[in-house]
Computed example of a mutant assay.
Amino acid sequence: MADAATKVIPEGKVPENANEHCPGPESESAGRAAGCEGCPNQEICSTQAAGPDPDLPIVAERLSNVKHKILVLSGKGGVGKSTFTGQLAFALANDENTQVGVVDIDICGPSLPRIMGCEREQVHPSSNGWSPVYVQDNLAVMSIAFMLPDEESAVIWRGPKKNGMIKQFLKDVNWTDADEQLDFMLFDTPPGTSDEHLSVVQLLRNSGITGAVIVTTPQEVSIQDVRKEIDFCRKASVPIIGVVENMSGFVCPGCHNESRIFYPTTGGAKALCEELDIPLLGSIPLDPSIGQACDFGSSFIDTHADSPAAHAYTRIISKIKSIVVES
């Protein structure tokens, strides 16, 4: 196995146990081909508009100054994907010369505004489009949560309306001025491989996706769903940057012994990555302070810099930066 910190899984590589006759979600025959029979995503793929989306060139133009676009994915909810996205954004923005944007495409469960400490802000229109909410001078966030009347309001939308909102986040938001560059754009996605995932992949088709970071927990019930997420990335030609194992153990602050809370029955993320030849970016132990940092919208890496979890975050984020820059 090659060094996990120096490679990205090639685009379009399909695992051996995948449906060999799947045309891929971006194909004109998606959802209609013979190999689509029985696929749980058949209806979603078949209802996509036929032919090229006329807004794709507009999205590509709007994002032409965005250097790296990274999807943060998870097969299952509750594994800490949004938490990781927020902490990754804070860490990248620690370099004042690095411009970072975060797009919350979890339309029905937008949690990033609280994690980023900007949940009570609002989006304002300008002559160049919507202005994202700035957490700091070089860190901007866009989420549907900024448009809801209060924090308890539910978003009860079907797929087409959710997809339309994601398109607006990319097409109508003024992420950068003409003479500026956004170094990183992070996409926090909902669990699974459904409407939002297909929509963002198709909308970024012309402007390109740098890769995906997949977040899991050690137990087999999460690993099984991550396999589906990997399959989606390969069929949708999304490069895989690597896998992060979250909540990998609990380090006692008193005795410093580590306990396995979620036991890796089948070997966890390490065994999965070895089997599928995917980079394992690292493991993050459980730490109650991470949840507290998210509740208060602060950077855990800054407030608890000496903790084992902060050291794990730092190592993982350094690997992501090195892989992205070299890819």
Results as ranks from 00 to 15, higher is better:
residue 5 A to V: 09
residue 5 A to L: 13
residue 7 K to N: 14
residue 11 E to R: 15
residue 11 E to W: 09
residue 12 G to A: 14
residue 12 G to V: 11
residue 13 K to G: 04
residue 18 A to L: 05
residue 21 H to S: 15
residue 22 C to Y: 05
residue 24 G to L: 11
residue 25 P to R: 08
residue 26 E to R: 12
residue 32 R to F: 13
residue 34 A to S: 13
residue 35 G to R: 10
residue 36 C to S: 05
residue 36 C to D: 07
residue 37 E to R: 10
residue 40 P to G: 04
residue 44 I to P: 08
residue 47 T to Y: 14
residue 47 T to G: 13
residue 48 Q to I: 12
residue 50 A to I: 14
residue 51 G to T: 12
residue 52 P to Q: 12
residue 58 I to Y: 03
residue 59 V to I: 01
residue 59 V to M: 02
residue 59 V to Q: 03
residue 61 E to C: 12
residue 67 K to Y: 05
residue 68 H to L: 05
residue 69 K to A: 01
residue 74 S to R: 03
residue 80 G to A: 03
residue 81 K to N: 00
residue 84 F to D: 04
residue 88 L to A: 07
residue 92 L to T: 03
residue 93 A to Y: 11
residue 94 N to E: 15
residue 94 N to A: 15
residue 95 D to K: 05
residue 96 E to I: 11
residue 96 E to H: 04
residue 97 N to S: 12
residue 98 T to Q: 08
residue 102 V to S: 03
residue 103 V to T: 10
residue 103 V to R: 01
residue 107 I to E: 03
residue 110 P to L: 06
residue 116 M to K: 02
residue 116 M to I: 00
residue 117 G to M: 01
residue 117 G to N: 00
residue 118 C to Q: 10
residue 118 C to D: 03
residue 119 E to L: 15
residue 120 R to Y: 13
residue 125 P to N: 14
residue 126 S to N: 08
residue 127 S to A: 14
residue 127 S to K: 14
residue 128 N to L: 11
residue 129 G to W: 07
residue 131 S to Y: 13
residue 134 Y to N: 14
residue 135 V to F: 07
residue 137 D to Q: 06
residue 137 D to P: 00
residue 141 V to S: 08
residue 143 S to A: 14
residue 147 M to I: 08
residue 153 S to C: 07
residue 153 S to M: 10
residue 154 A to H: 05
residue 156 I to G: 02
residue 159 G to L: 02
residue 159 G to E: 01
residue 161 K to P: 10
residue 168 Q to T: 07
residue 182 L to A: 07
residue 186 L to I: 06
residue 189 T to M: 13
residue 195 D to K: 04
residue 195 D to V: 00
residue 196 E to D: 12
residue 196 E to H: 08
residue 204 L to I: 02
residue 206 N to G: 13
residue 210 T to E: 00
residue 210 T to D: 01
residue 212 A to L: 02
residue 214 I to H: 01
residue 221 V to C: 08
residue 222 S to W: 08
residue 225 D to K: 12
residue 226 V to F: 04
residue 227 R to P: 03
residue 228 K to M: 10
residue 229 E to R: 06
residue 235 K to L: 14
residue 235 K to Y: 15
residue 237 S to N: 15
residue 237 S to Y: 15
residue 237 S to M: 14
residue 243 V to D: 04
residue 243 V to H: 01
residue 247 M to E: 07
residue 249 G to D: 13
residue 249 G to M: 04
residue 251 V to A: 12
residue 252 C to R: 07
residue 252 C to N: 10
residue 253 P to Y: 04
residue 254 G to T: 13
residue 262 F to H: 10
residue 263 Y to M: 15
residue 264 P to G: 11
residue 264 P to V: 14
residue 264 P to I: 13
residue 265 T to V: 15
residue 266 T to R: 15
residue 268 G to W: 00
residue 270 K to M: 11
residue 275 E to C: 07
residue 278 I to Q: 07
residue 278 I to P: 00
residue 281 L to T: 10
residue 284 I to W: 05
residue 288 P to C: 04
residue 289 S to E: 08
residue 289 S to D: 11
residue 290 I to Q: 08
residue 293 A to M: 07
residue 293 A to K: 08
residue 294 C to M: 12
residue 298 S to R: 13
residue 299 S to K: 02
residue 302 D to A: 13
residue 303 T to E: 12
residue 305 A to R: 13
residue 306 D to S: 15
residue 309 A to N: 03
residue 311 H to W: 09
residue 312 A to N: 02
residue 313 Y to A: 03
residue 319 K to H: 06
residue 322 S to P: 04
residue 325 V to M: 12
residue 326 E to P: 06
